[in-house]
Design a binder for these strands. Structure first.
Lengths: 262, 262
DNA sequence: CGCTTACTTGAGCCATGTCAATTGAGGTGG
DNA sequence: CCACCTCAATTGACATGGCTCAAGTAAGCG
């Protein structure tokens, strides 16, 4: 249960992972637009292999670079965009993470390299709030120019189509099947989904940081904060995971998988 | 409650609507490929304004036409594709309807003019079964040629991007928020979503045919068949809807909206 | 017209929600 | 560095919506 036992074996390790995943922005001037001080380019970004420039030839990356030159910083708790805002740009998450909320309910969790705003392409109006879960930074991708560039760069078209496609089965389809799952399955599915996504980004899949608070997680999963807590406690008591507020460590992947029933 | 009362006022009207929505295929030769006997073309298809050729110039429609020449009929209960099948084509539903199922659970409902298979673009493998809910017909849209044509026809690219985008918020996002809804809200949301979708297709939104069986609906909504029945009965007893097995008529849209809480 | 499948309804129980209190963590001013 | 304050997380006791099991009724089909 960890509680205030400060000599826990995995403690340092877990803090390490925390450092790894936490946005390393210390420059916290208010949400600025335009190129940030540090000259950043897709070709040097550590996310390039999973983000927009994925699969592009070196020379073509420059064109994407030009497109995404504008950055924007968003402070923890601030909105990147709000429901009702006109859709003009997609946003590629550079660092940090976001939740999307509709009618007071959390409907999505977005990690680095993911594109925010894809669902507004059809309606031209954002239909949810995108709120930063920590100090974050995004690359602004103006949509109209992007579609023009897509016509020139088949590989870019491919990437965008794939990004849209995988957004359909967001979280590996977890949320879609969520309605039919028990509260325990929801929590476990949530943790496994996060694990897989962090792994995809190149981080350890067994130890990661959940940026959302308990009530956000609960809202996201369609259960209550109390139930979420109880289940996390139970999973920990049974030795399947260890938690320390926002940090989670997967201890028994197999038994977790079994709980999901696949 | 209708039961076996044959003199119900709305009876004829409802049957009329049934005829309207039911696939009018009487030619039921086994699932054939290639151009069906009736020479069909996008430019004469009654779905053209909401389907692939949407927004295209007359001359360009011919190119889409060429792409989608192959049709395929799928008998009620048969699979258009199955989980694990290699992804090669998208399918535009020409008539009829499909459910998608994963692990024995219903995860989607697809109506005419919708594109099936979009989520497999990223993985190249279908990850659900697509089962016809009635005798249906689809236009086969080979994916690789489609992407090439998209590079030539910006309006086609636009349509595909929008189709993908609106698939993200499938059913107006109903399913996403499903986890947080009561059983009653799920059923009501399901009916309202269907109503809106039929309306989009040009049919009456107040009177339509639910092609799925009760247990499919229940599975789709993450509740039990019994609960689904009870709720439908209650909604009817309270005068919000009238049902006769697969046919539904919305009687009090406002009160239904209120139940959803928006 | 009988058989099979789909739908509907009832009774009791359990998982999860609700309400409420306690503990713990992190930030801030003295 | 400590005492305090606030917000987040956890835990307990009780109420209830939806599930399970089971029976009955209606509809489609050969």
């Amino acid at each position: 249960m960890l509680k205030n036992v400060s000599a826990d074996v995995t403690d340092t390790g877990r803090n390490e992972s925390l450092g790894l995943l936490r946005s390393n922005l210390t420059d916290v001037r208010s949400t600025t637009s335009q190129a940030s001080g540090v000259r950043s380019s897709c070709s040097t970004c550590h996310l390039r292999s999973v983000c927009l420039p994925r699969g592009l030839e070196q020379e073509h990356i420059a064109q994407v670079d030009h497109l995404t030159r504008a950055k924007r910083k968003v402070r923890r708790g601030a909105a990147l965009f709000r429901r009702g805002d006109l859709f003009e740009s997609l946003y590629a998450i550079r660092s940090g993470s976001f939740k999307s909320t509709q009618y007071g309910k959390v409907t999505g969790l977005h990690l680095p390299a993911e594109l925010l705003g894809l669902d507004a392409i059809s309606s031209q109006i954002h239909d949810y709030d995108a709120i930063a879960l920590e100090d974050s930074e995004v690359c602004i991708v103006p949509y109209a120019p992007l579609t023009l560039l897509m016509l020139q760069l088949p590989d870019l078209q491919t990437h965008i189509l794939e990004a849209l496609s995988s957004d359909i089965t967001r979280d590996g389809g977890l949320l879609l099947r969520l309605g039919a799952m028990s509260a325990e399955q929801r929590v476990v599915g949530f943790l496994m989904g996060l694990s897989a996504r962090y792994q995809f980004l190149g981080y350890a899949g067994t130890r990661f940081s959940v940026r959302m608070r308990r009530d956000d997680i609960a809202s996201y999963l369609g259960i209550t904060e109390e139930t979420t807590c109880r289940i996390l406690s139970r999973l920990e008591r049974d030795g399947l995971i260890e938690t320390r507020i926002k940090d989670v460590e997967i201890k028994d992947l197999n038994r977790l998988r079994n709980l999901l029933g696949y």
